[in-house]
Amino acid sequence: MSLPVSKQKALYEWKLYFFIIPSLLLVAVFAYWPTLSAIYHSFFRWGGGDNKEFIGLANFSRALQDGVFWGAFLTIAILVVANLFKMIPSIAMAVLIHRLRSERWQYWYRVLVVLPMIVPSLVTLFIWKFFFNPNMGALNSFLDLTGLKSLLIAADKAFGWGGVFLDGIPTAWLGEPALVIPALIIWGFPWLGAVGVLIFLAGLQSIGTEVYEAADLDGVTPFQKFLHIEFPLIMTQVRLMVVLMMIGTLQGYGLQFLLLGEDGGPGGRGMVPGLWMFNRAFFAGEFGYACALGLFLFAFILVLTMINNKFIRVEK
């Protein structure tokens, strides 16, 4: 394969290559080295210390039979589907900001959307944990005040949810197996991701005004504009966000760990692959096995990303 530029041209300002050495070193030390180390240790029975025993593919074959690990993928599948829907408010907000006629108001809305980003994510997690508190949390208070609790009780009785909503008893959102996944989905309401809004907005702002003018001449309604102009033209951004969301959902476990503990909460219903990997490493002391689980996770994300790139094509 030939280089896109001639060798002479590529080496003309060769000194510039020194500028990328620090970045390359950082990436090698903090990204590639741990990954290579994980691959290496996945072939060992290793407790995190210097004492380890080569066991070949035993960790991988054990992982293949690990019911908790594969069961955690079901939870992930539900969360990924839910997160797809949770992207809608960000897209809607981006469209609304984009359509504001006043640039000053656009600016202020962008600021308002970005402002929550300065709150550390851990603080947000703690606030949500408090929201879910059965006795003093905002969620149960809201349900009681609005009368929605009565509806939920009726639905519980009608559909046989197993008595998770009972009259006079505060709902334990993170204490009932049946409510764990709904709680994880509710988390983050109204699901306005600042990064998502900004990325979608960037995509929307690249749409030429002539397209809108033509649409106006054709008498296209605002919703049709979104459906036939805006949404197709921000598919690149949507695809990027879908990939990032899937990787984040598959890798993430901080939310589950903080809300439910290292065992995934009641019935282990909040167990996700990342949390199981963390559990095995730091609570069972099986670092080698956790490395093997991590490699499975890596392969899974890689395949999903490839599928996503192959099948969700953007028409240029």
Binding site: G163, L166, G175, E176, P177, D263, P266, G267, G268, N279
Partner: peptide, 14 residues
């Protein structure tokens, strides 16, 4: 893990 994730079956309302 097995015991703690089932505590709700012992101490939950139902």
């Amino acid at each position: 893990r097995v015991v703690s994730t089932a505590y709700n079956r012992l101490m939950g309302a139902a």
